[in-house]
Simulated scan of single mutants.
Amino acid sequence: MISLLKASPAGDAVSALLDCHDRIRSFTALALRLARAHDLAEPEARDAAAAVHRYFSAALPLHARDEEESILPRLRGREPALDAALAVMVREHREHEAAVGRLLAACAAVSARPAELARVAPELEAAALDLERHFDEHLAAEERVLFPALRALLRPEDHQAVLAELRARRT
């Protein structure tokens, strides 16, 4: 389903997770562009809203599971600073659920009735901005603390096991 998991450039789990982070940023930006679009043709609005909805309802929850089920157990207990970062990661995954829910509702409305874009645009923009603010720090913290720890602490066979788990979640 998601091509990044076929092979990661560096052959490790971090490369796959970074690809996911790029997609999170990309789909958040697409949601903002959609909310700010004026005079967008209905088919384009429908397609963009459907793509954003698909990503945030299917792929984002898989990414959170990747981190919580494949990464957290492999890093937990190694050092206190990592444990603190992991606890923040899990807490923040829960904290962005409300904004994701608002974004999904707005995108579902536009997917079903593209002419509703102007009416739902303020809520879509507010939800996307909330997520953008959240993800700016959340993703950067993972990239700054957790991902280097993964590269330093996991053996190549551990990376392959994580990649296999990520692939299995998507089949």
Results as ranks from 00 to 15, higher is better:
Arg102Val: 03
Gly101Phe: 13
Ala99Cys: 10
Leu103Tyr: 10
Ala112Asn: 05
His93Asn: 02
Ala112Tyr: 07
Met89Gln: 09
Met89Glu: 02
Leu86His: 04
Met89Asn: 03
Ala84Met: 07
Val110Cys: 11
Met89Asp: 04
Ala99Pro: 13
Val110Thr: 03
Glu95Pro: 03
Ala105Leu: 03
Ala99Asn: 08
Ala112Asp: 04
Ser111Ile: 07
Ala87Ser: 06
Gly101Cys: 09
Ala84Arg: 05
Ala108Leu: 14
Leu82Pro: 08
Arg91Gln: 09
Leu103Ile: 05
Cys107Phe: 13
Leu104Ala: 10
Gly101Leu: 14
Val90Cys: 06
Ala87Gly: 06
Glu95Phe: 14
Cys107Asn: 13
Arg91Gly: 03
Ala87Lys: 04
His96Ala: 12
Val88Asp: 07
Asp83Glu: 09
Glu97Trp: 04
Val90His: 03
His93Thr: 01
Cys107Trp: 07
Leu86Gln: 08
Ala105Glu: 13
Ala112Gln: 14
Arg91His: 11
Ala109Pro: 01
His96Trp: 08
Arg102Ala: 10
Leu86Glu: 04
Leu86Gly: 04
Arg91Ser: 05
Glu92Val: 06
Cys107Val: 05
Cys107Asp: 13
Asp83Thr: 12
Glu92Gly: 01
Arg102Leu: 12
Ala81His: 08
Met89His: 03
Val88Lys: 03
Leu103Met: 06
Leu82Thr: 10
Ala105Val: 01
Glu95Gly: 07
His93Phe: 00
Leu103Cys: 10
Glu95Asp: 12
Ala99Phe: 15
Glu95Gln: 15
Arg91Ile: 02
Ala105Phe: 04
Ala109Val: 05
Leu82Met: 12
Ala105Thr: 05
His93Gln: 04
Val90Ile: 05
Arg113Ala: 15
Arg113Val: 12
Gly101Asn: 12
Cys107Ala: 12
Val110Asn: 05
Glu92Lys: 10
Ala108Asn: 07
Arg94Cys: 00
Met89Val: 01
Ala84Ser: 14
Cys107Thr: 09
Glu97Ile: 15
Ala99Leu: 10
Asp83Arg: 01
His96Tyr: 09
Leu82Tyr: 06
Ala81Pro: 02
Ala87Glu: 14
Ala84Asp: 15
Glu92Met: 03
Leu104Pro: 08
Arg102Trp: 12
Met89Arg: 02
Arg113Asp: 04
Ala112Val: 06
Arg94Met: 02
Ala112Trp: 11
Val110Phe: 13
Leu86Tyr: 03
Ala99His: 06
Ala99Ile: 12
Ala99Thr: 12
Arg113Cys: 08
Arg91Ala: 11
Val88Gly: 00
Ala85Trp: 00
Leu86Met: 05
Arg91Asn: 00
Ala109Leu: 13
Gly101Ser: 14
Met89Phe: 04
His96Lys: 07
Leu103Ala: 06
Ala112Met: 10
Ala85Lys: 00
Ala87Gln: 11
Ala106Gly: 05
Glu97Asn: 09
Ala85Asp: 04
Val100Ile: 15
Ala105Gly: 07
Cys107Ile: 03
Asp83Tyr: 02
Arg102Asp: 15
Val90Lys: 09
Ala106Arg: 01
Val100His: 09
Ala106Glu: 09
Ala106Val: 02
Arg91Phe: 07
Ala112Pro: 01
Ala105Ile: 00
Leu82Gly: 11
Asp83Leu: 13
Ala87Phe: 02
Arg102Gln: 14
